[in-house]
Design a binder for these strands. Structure first.
Length: 528
RNA sequence: GUCCCCUUCGUCUAGUGGCCUAGGACGCUGGCCUCUCACGCCGGAAACAGGGGUUCGACUCCCCUAGGGGACGCCA
């Protein structure tokens, strides 16, 4: 993680300022960001965090970071660390969280395991929830049948029919089970949103949500309600993808007899095609933007322009500026497209206007132009230069963003046909997207395996990869280059290469996916 | 498919019933500055999704239609 001193400085300063303010105008406003550590730090998380932070501070309240790691299969410590680091890099600071502690801890749901079951069982005792013994496969079949009949897939209440004795017997037998909440069969649920007013949803649309999973972990729905209550969260500001779950949450608050926080659903960040921002179509990892050389101030500034504007409409503003002018009513509800072109322009403004030559030099050093970063790659360069000035031309791709590629270049450097190249690059991309640990040996193994599976000589397989990553096959080791560039930039370059070659249509993707799945099977067959 | 949310230039947005001949910004484009480029400055093209109401008056309020998005998991 690259430290950023100037940002840290003024954020510290801000804490000082708000700290004094709270003394005068005490407020009990508490907001939270609750990321799930299951992948790369997402710009959407930062966006929601920013608005939660602004809202809390503006009211002299507190902003909490809580880790929602109830998905045991997918949550990782590395992901959690990356999320924390990324948010800090951006200059976002929380008053309570797993790293800084607080009076309402622990702030990691896996460490709060003990508390959820009792709440779920309390609901069972009070008749608001029930044990369910249906297996995932059974439910899958149920949903398929419902879909076939043209119905909305929904839990049919099968375990509700079980007698008390039957349930007890099965529990004593230690049969795998979950706890589900009961939901009214009819009527309308009215939820209130700070920005959208009242929203009405038929109870018939609401599923009997699982509260406690078979592994004893709570689902988001239970954990989020219990923790928001125990952590005294007053305002839940989250993405609009949660609107349809709000009735469940409201019902849980009612069952428990707790006061419900005020809800506020922000519009979702979008891809250029208007769909929800996704890494398939747009870089979504904060690490990507960091590696590309965006300034954290500019990133945060841009996220603040998503669905929000300053009263005087100024484009460039710091977190401090935003904090002092923040008004959540200025949020506009249309889903904003994350436009990297405008972000780029804004970043340029920050570089030109906020940095003198000295600070600019510091940023460059912190970013990549430093001994520690360059060291691993220097031996490779040393082999192929004769004079020192040979270094810059052959190493420039290592400190560049997207390369200026052409279809022609790929065809010249490879003997494969265009469709073959596309397939090869797409498969390589999928393999590398699935790779959890970005290490030289692991990358190499994936590539080698893929070449074998496709029955392409490694040399031929590597050629287009060289062009995608380095712009030419006359370059240093493509594996080492990818390690140096990191996963986000490497994957982005391969995606870019695919685009340059004309891209892959939806139809083609389907076919490729099928072929790709076959590869896996063939490999498994060989192994066995 | 069902339900929910949303809808101002290509994009981000201003607009909370008269100030709108709809403003700003990115991008595009013409020019100026200038050893080139970039920056900067000046100018241009570019939008209220459509239809009904309400009102003396609708970008603004209501309804319908259309379009877009989201949700429908033992993921969050």
């Amino acid at each position: 993680m690259m430290p950023n001193f100037s940002v840290r400085c003024w954020t510290q300063h801000m804490i000082g300022v708000t700290g004094t303010l709270t003394g005068i105008q005490m407020s009990n406003v508490r907001t939270r960001i609750a990321p799930s550590p299951t992948g790369d730090p997402h710009v959407g998380t930062a966006y929601i965090a920013l608005f939660n932070l602004c809202f809390a501070r503006q009211h002299g309240g507190r902003f909490v970071l809580r880790i929602e790691d109830t998905d045991q299969a997918r949550s990782t410590a590395e992901s959690e660390q990356a999320i924390l680091d990324s948010l800090k890099w951006l200059g976002l600071d929380w008053d309570e969280g797993p790293d800084v502690g607080g009076d309402f801890g622990p702030y990691r749901q896996s460490e709060r395991m003990g508390i959820y079951r009792q709440y779920a069982e309390q609901l069972v005792k009070e008749g608001h929830a029930f044990y369910c013994f249906a297996t995932p496969a059974e439910l899958d079949q149920m949903r398929q049948e419902q879909m076939a009949r043209g119905e909305t897939p929904k839990y049919d209440g099968r375990s509700l029919a079980l007698s008390y004795d039957e349930v007890q017997r099965r529990l004593e037998n230690m049969e795998p089970h979950v706890i589900r909440m009961k939901v009214p069969h009819q009527g309308v649920c009215e939820i209130s949103d700070m920005l959208r007013g009242n929203i009405q949803i038929d109870w018939a649309q609401v599923d009997m949500q699982i509260l406690l999973k078979a592994d004893g972990m709570p689902t988001y729905h239970l954990a989020n309600v219990v923790d928001d209550h125990l952590m005294e969260i007053t305002h839940v500001i989250r993405g609009e993808e949660w609107i349809n779950s709000a009735p469940k949450h409201q019902l849980l608050y009612q069952y428990f007899g707790w006061e419900m926080p005020t809800l506020c659903h922000l519009p979702l960040l979008r891809n250029p095609d208007k769909s929800k921002l996704s890494k398939r179509k747009n870089p979504t990892s904060i690490l990507y933007y960091q590696r590309m050389g965006y300034l954290p101030e500019a990133m945060l500034n841009y996220l603040g322009r998503m669905g929000w504007s300053m009263p005087d409409e100024r484009e460039k503003f710091s977190l401090y500026d935003m904090l002092s002018e923040f008004d959540i009513n200025r949020v506009s509800l249309g889903g904003p497209i994350f436009d990297t072109e405008k972000l780029r322009w804004l970043n340029g403004c920050w570089i030109r206007e906020e940095l003198d030559a000295d600070l600019f030099a510091q940023r460059l050093q912190n970013w990549a132009y430093n001994r520690e970063t360059l060291m691993p790659i220097l031996p490779h360069l040393q082999q192929r230069v004769e004079i020192l000035s040979d270094v810059a031309p052959i190493a420039s791709f290592l400190v560049s963003g997207m390369l200026d590629l052409s279809e022609d270049r790929f065809l010249r450097e490879s003997k494969l046909e265009k469709s073959e190249l596309l397939k090869l690059l797409q498969f390589a991309l999928w393999r590398l997207e699935a790779l959890r640990h970005w290490q030289r040996e692991l990358i190499f193994e994936e590539i080698k395996l893929l070449a074998t599976q496709l029955e392409v000589k490694l040399k031929d397989f590597l050629a287009p990869l060289f062009v995608a990553i380095a712009g030419t096959s006359a370059s240093i080791s493509v594996m080492d280059s990818m390690v140096f560039l990191g996963p986000d930039l490497s994957r982005a370059r391969i995606r870019h290469a695919i685009e340059v070659l004309g891209g892959v249509s939806k139809k083609q993707t389907k076919k490729l996916e099928k072929d790709y799945a076959q590869l896996g099977k063939a490999a498994q067959g060989k192994d066995a």
